[in-house]
């Protein structure tokens, strides 16, 4: 079982969560082109390695979480709220 450390609830097993989606995309402008929207809705990278994704703590606090998971090892290296960033990326930006 994956264990996800929810910022609100602490470490819980993954059966409480629902996988949401790839967290590497952001909503296009409402008037963006059909191609842009198509890209947003349908195109995903199939990453082998570190992947940022959204999980919903559906049977817990019901918060949507951002989870950094290694798709090869299932190791979860970071969990935050949707608009947080992992410390490594925060440092890189500052």
């Amino acid at each position: 079982m994956l264990r996800i450390n929810c910022p609100h609830c602490g470490e819980r097993e993954h059966s409480e969560f629902t996988y949401g989606e790839d967290a590497n995309r952001s909503l296009p402008a409402t008037d963006a082109s059909l191609e842009t929207w198509n890209e947003y809705v349908y195109q995903r990278d199939n990453v082998a390695g570190e992947h940022m994704e959204y999980w919903h703590h559906a049977l817990g606090c019901r918060t949507w979480l951002k989870v950094q998971r290694n798709t090869l090892t299932h190791e979860i290296s970071w969990v935050g709220l949707p608009h947080d960033m992992p410390p490594s990326q925060t440092e890189a930006q500052s």
Binding site: G20, Y54, H56, A58, R62, T63, L81, P82
Partner: peptide, 13 residues
Amino acid sequence: LAHMERCLEIDWP
């Protein structure tokens, strides 16, 4: 409900 929560937390905070 999950859809609306998603919209609020991810798309339109």
